[in-house]
Design a protein around this nucleic acid. Sequence first.
DNA 1: CTGCTTTTTTGACTTTTGTCAAAGCAAGTC
DNA 2: GACTTGCTTTGACAAAAGTCAAAAAAGCAG
Lengths: 194, 194
Amino acid sequence: MTTKRADLLPIFEKFIPISEAAQDMFFSFLMETTAPKGTILLKPRQICTRLYFLKEGFAYQYRCTEKANIVTYFWFEQDFITNLPSFLTQIPSTETIEVLDDSILYSITYDQLQLLYQAYPEFNALGRLILEHYYLELANVGDLFSTYPAKSRYDKLLQQKPQLFQQATLGQIASYLNISQETLSRVRAQKEIS
Amino acid sequence: MTTKRADLLPIFEKFIPISEAAQDMFFSFLMETTAPKGTILLKPRQICTRLYFLKEGFAYQYRCTEKANIVTYFWFEQDFITNLPSFLTQIPSTETIEVLDDSILYSITYDQLQLLYQAYPEFNALGRLILEHYYLELANVGDLFSTYPAKSRYDKLLQQKPQLFQQATLGQIASYLNISQETLSRVRAQKEIS
DNA sequence: CTGCTTTTTTGACTTTTGTCAAAGCAAGTC
DNA sequence: GACTTGCTTTGACAAAAGTCAAAAAAGCAG
């Protein structure tokens, strides 16, 4: 499908050029799916076998605890979705990935990716560069959480991911920020005054 | 130096085999340094140009704020030390890396590493695998910080990194856990009773 | 052993955040 | 327009953690 190529190639090329042959193998593996709002991409105790590219839509990840669901990540359009801890190690995930809006996804499996790594060394460079990108992303999230108090965390997130506040509910955002919904509400009210 | 080879090769081989030629290039770049306790490996506003391997010793990273220094990472023997955000992007660091015990370090520069990536594709695979390892490590740290309350964080860290409690002061550990030293002290006292 | 310094603990009090419960708002449906 | 249903805000109170100050304990040098 030419549209998949048109969607993904520019993203790859931002990192590193990929040979025609490698591209062909990659796109022959790539699967397109539509996922209606509420679709679960990964369940707890399940091994994450797919790496998704979110062409269109919105998704999030959460961990179920006795008390509540703790939101741990959000994905927007053009993001690569996967539970990296489970995907990289191929051990069961502790988290759930759920689609929050009707979405269009492209995906390949872990095994297919390993074949690509073996067949085309340049794919290792791409994998490394994309991983570097996600490492920096995660480091950024870590930064967010070392911030104190609640209000500063809110401000930082608002600045870093303004889109989030238009797509997620305040309950989900509060959970992600690791503060109660009530505290988030009060923090926002306070904000308006100053 | 044969000793560097003996120290590092087994670690590489755990991930992926490296050709003789690639090894030769790598070890020709590798520099050995001794760093007495208190040595600063990276200062804020400085670009992190080196990737270190901590053969022997103990080191940590902290961010200076108006109020205090916030500890953000610890490294033990056999760890790779670098400020990845600065090293990967080659933009100035916001953190300080300091050696807490007399240490022996091996290191290569960012530019040397790029030469290795270009000259030997297999190095990309190694880079990717090591990065995967550090991603998982960081995800783990993130996990630690999503834990609430203070006592649970302490328990988790105690379980995950018992060595830490023998090498770092409680003040440093409290800062790393993002709780006050007094709270950490009380949490530990509480622990003894039960 | 003795005095010094550094680290850790304890106490009293304050601030921040969480919890529970109820009320307010908004969007969509009949 | 009235009625669900889901999301957000507000209020009252409780719990957790921070701060400041001082005491106790542990390490070290002479």
